[in-house]
Design a binder for these strands. Structure first.
Lengths: 125, 125
DNA sequence: TGTGTGTACTATGTCACATAGTACACCAAA
DNA sequence: TTTGGTGTACTATGTGACATAGTACACACA
């Protein structure tokens, strides 16, 4: 389920967060779905349980998941809407990215072509 | 000339690299222009000379600048073309970004509007 | 000769990240 | 009740990137 890159500059605990959040956005993980246990996932990914714990703790803090003592962790009801709002806020950063492409000689049509191709396709992952 | 964010996760030496490269792309720094000295810039930015040295060393390795022993560092002839080609290669990552915005409920028109606004304006910085 | 330039090197400190190990409280099933 | 699985909390340790501190050397130019 999770794919880690131990050589990446992105911390492992953050890679787990990012991937889990993308699963939520793509409806692969829906509200009240139980997550893998801290210990179970640590064995599967061959990393320390504390690292998983750190990821889950942060996700809980963001309201993406909730934990039930003695039971496990689950996707929260509002997970997707929270993440959707966050993603929308990334719209503003597009301006900087496009500016960079512009000075590099990329035309607006090239960008728009990519936009169209993404929105024609079905769900991607 | 340079603006540092010491709280950023991005290393200082990398912030310097990024900003200098953006200056080149925006024709603020042109070929054979002399860069601030390692010691001078370290005083101006209140950071260690070795940090500047690391930035310059990496820029030299990328072919963005060249150093003349005893004279100083200068913008290389091919600096802009090198960086332009690198920026163009970022086009491919647009697909992933747009996919994320799509699942978040952002419409294609919203994106295209931003594209147009950027390409209408003059140089940004 | 003197000053400013890039370059190289070792040593040190700090911090995020990850690991290791232990312990406790809770829930559910046997 | 007992047992095993769950989340949670805590301390200690190791590692590596990053930055600093200090020194030293070779080169160019006035």
């Amino acid at each position: 389920m999770f794919q880690l890159d131990l050589l990446s500059r992105t911390p492992v605990y953050e890679q787990i967060i990012n991937q889990l959040e993308s699963f939520v956005l793509n409806d692969i993980l829906t509200p009240h779905t139980q997550l893998p246990s801290v210990r179970g996932l640590s064995v599967e990914l061959s990393i320390n349980p504390n690292t998983i714990q750190k990821s889950y703790s942060e996700l809980d803090h963001r309201g993406i998941i909730y934990s039930v003592p003695g039971r496990g962790c689950f996707i929260s009801e509002d997970a997707k809407s929270i993440l959707s709002n966050l993603s929308r806020s990334k719209l503003s950063s597009l301006e900087d990215l496009f500016s960079e492409l512009k000075v590099a000689g990329v035309t607006k049509d090239e960008i728009k072509t990519i936009v169209d191709s993404v929105y024609e396709k079905g769900a991607k992952l």
